[in-house]
Amino acid sequence: MAKVSMTVNGRAVSGDVAGNRLLVEFLREDLRMTGTHVGCDTSQCGACVVHVNGKAVKSCTMLAHEAEGATITTIEGIASPDGTMSRVQQAFQDHHGLQCGFCTPGMVMTATKLLEQNPTPTEAEVRHALEGNICRCTGYHNIVKAILAASGQDVSKIAAE
């Protein structure tokens, strides 16, 4: 066991954790922040995506100790403190970009990072960016549509699927 300290959603946190503690375990089980999900636990599904020092990473495939000193943003840190949803979150609601919602935290974190790096992506670029996020409900169409809408592009001509 060794101490690890980091900043999560603006709050300084620390804990005494084993070398093999995963970042997602530290977030969910030690900090009790269960918005970040574990789907596959094999770094394929992307439900566990968080931002570490401004980069989207799969928190099930990073050790907690690797995040020593890091600045972390999780899905709990995406909405405004007053509860107003981010434009990506709002677009997911407006365009029915979720059904069961299990993959949604990871989808929102990946999409938020995409739009920071590429403010007006094409549909192909959105789909490329989502390659590491698996959804078993929606068939992706409305997720892609929501992200395009969040980027300010006109999605009225994209048929509802």
């Binding site: 992307g46 799969k58 390659e131």
Partner: peptide, 9 residues
């Protein structure tokens, strides 16, 4: 390679 999150690590 892989996906965006994999490429960041």
């Amino acid at each position: 390679i892989g996906d965006p999150a994999v490429r960041n690590r």
